[in-house]
C-alpha cells in the first residue's frame, strides 16, 4: 500500500483509510471545519451523504457523535488533537467514555511537528488527557502503514478509540506484511544493553539511534508502542528484565504519555533505570518541525545521549 521510505503524513493515511474502509454504511464521519487539513475530505468525496460538518464547535460534535453511536453507527469525529482532546475533553469523558460508545476520535496535527502554527496548536498533552478516561483506547501510529491499519482496527473495535495523527510527512517504515494488533507492542530490533521504547514519529529516530549506538559498541533493542492504552505491559517488562535499562521517546510532554505509562509499568513490575525523551513540560513555539525537534530534543542525538546516561546508571 505504502512504499517503505515514502514520506507521507499519518493524517493522509487516515483520510485515505476512511475512504478505503468507509463502505460500511454504519460509518459516519464528522469534522469541525477542518476536513481539508484532517483529510476527512477524502471520505467526503466518496461518501458525501455520510460526511457531516459540525462547524467550529468541537464539544457539540463529540456529543453529537455519542448520540449517533447510541443509534448503532460507528462515528469518526475529527479535529486537531488540541481541540478534540482539549476543548472536547469533558464531552469525550461523559458522553463517549462513560457510556463506552463506539466513537473514534480522529485527532490530527498532534505534537510539535505542527510547526509554524505554534504553541496554541501543538498538542503535547492529548495522550495524557485521554489516558485518564476509563474505556478509552489510544493509538499513536508511527507511519502511514500503521495509521491505515489503526483505522481498520478502530472500526472493528467496540468502544471509544483516540487515534493520534500528525501533519508532517514522515517516512514509511512498515511494509504490507506488517501486523498490527491493538495493545500489542512491536519489537523492531533486538538488543541486550538497553531498550528504546518509541511511539509515533519518534520510531524512525529510535531506529537511527540504535545504529549510532551500535557504532559505540552499545546494543539497543527498539520497541514500537503504537497503543498507548491499553499499554503492552508484557513487552515492557520483558525488555526491562532482559536489557536492564529503558529510554522512552515520544512527541508529547514527558508527563502523561508514553514515558509515564512505561514508568508506571516499570515501577510496579520491574524497576530499572529509565529516561524519558519528549518535551520537558514546556510549551512549544513557532518554527519548522525539524528546527523544533532540535530545540526540544526530539531527535537521534538526544536518544543517543540519554541512552548513554541511562546505561551509566545500570
Amino acid at each position: 500500500m505504502y512504499k517503505i521510505g515514502e514520506k507521507i503524513a499519518t493524517r493522509e493515511a487516515y483520510g485515505a483509510a476512511l475512504a478505503e474502509f468507509g463502505c460500511d454504511e454504519r460509518i459516519i464521519v464528522l469534522d469541525a471545519d477542518l476536513s481539508k487539513s484532517t483529510k476527512t475530505d477524502c471520505f467526503k468525496k466518496v461518501y458525501p451523504e455520510r460526511f457531516i460538518n459540525a462547524g467550529i464547535a468541537e464539544g457539540n460534535m463529540l456529543s453529537v457523535a455519542a448520540g449517533m453511536s447510541a443509534c448503532g453507527n460507528i462515528v469518526f469525529a475529527s479535529s486537531f488533537a488540541m481541540f478534540a482532546s482539549g476543548r472536547a475533553f469533558e464531552q469525550i469523558r461523559n458522553s463517549v467514555g462513560y457510556p463506552c460508545l463506539n466513537v473514534k476520535i480522529g485527532a490530527t496535527h498532534a505534537g510539535i511537528s505542527v510547526g509554524e502554527d505554534g504553541a496554541t496548536h501543538q498538542c503535547l498533552e492529548d495522550m495524557g488527557i485521554m489516558r485518564t478516561i476509563p474505556n478509552m483506547t489510544i493509538i499513536n501510529p508511527a507511519d502511514a502503514t500503521e495509521a491505515r491499519l489503526a483505522v481498520k482496527a478502530a472500526i472493528d473495535h467496540q468502544g471509544p478509540v483516540y487515534l493520534r495523527f500528525g501533519r508532517l510527512a514522515v517516512p514509511t517504515i512498515f511494509g504490507d506484511d506488517y501486523k498490527f494488533e491493538i495493545g500489542k507492542g512491536v519489537e523492531l530490533e533486538d538488543g541486550t544493553d538497553l531498550t528504546i521504547i518509541a511511539t509515533g514519529l519518534m520510531v524512525p529516530y529510535a531506529q537511527e539511534a540504535r545504529n549510532a549506538l551500535l557504532e559505540l559498541g552499545i546494543s539497543a533493542r527498539v520497541v514500537n508502542i503504537h497503543t498507548i492504552k491499553p499499554i503492552d505491559k508484557e513487552i515492557i517488562i520483558k525488555a526491562a528484565k532482559e536489557t536492564g535499562a529503558i529510554v522512552t521517546a515520544e512527541e508529547h510532554n514527558i508527563i502523561g504519555g508514553l514515558g509515564s505509562a512505561v514508568a508506571e509499568v516499570l515501577a510496579e513490575n520491574a524497576p530499572v533505570p529509565m529516561a524519558r525523551i519528549g518535551t520537558q513540560d514546556v510549551f512549544g513555539r513557532s518554527g519548522t518541525p525539524q528546527k523544533l525537534f532540535e530545540i526540544y530534543g526530539l531527535d537521534t542525538k538526544t536518544i543517543v545521549e540519554k541512552s548513554k546516561e541511562v546505561l551509566a546508571k545500570k
Partner: peptide, 17 residues
C-alpha cells in the same frame, strides 16, 4: 449542555439511517 447535542446526533442518525 451535552444531552441536547446527543439528541441532535440521534435525530441526524435517524435521517441518515
Amino acid at each position: 449542555g451535552q444531552g441536547i447535542s446527543a439528541a441532535c446526533g440521534m435525530a441526524l442518525a435517524g435521517k441518515l439511517n
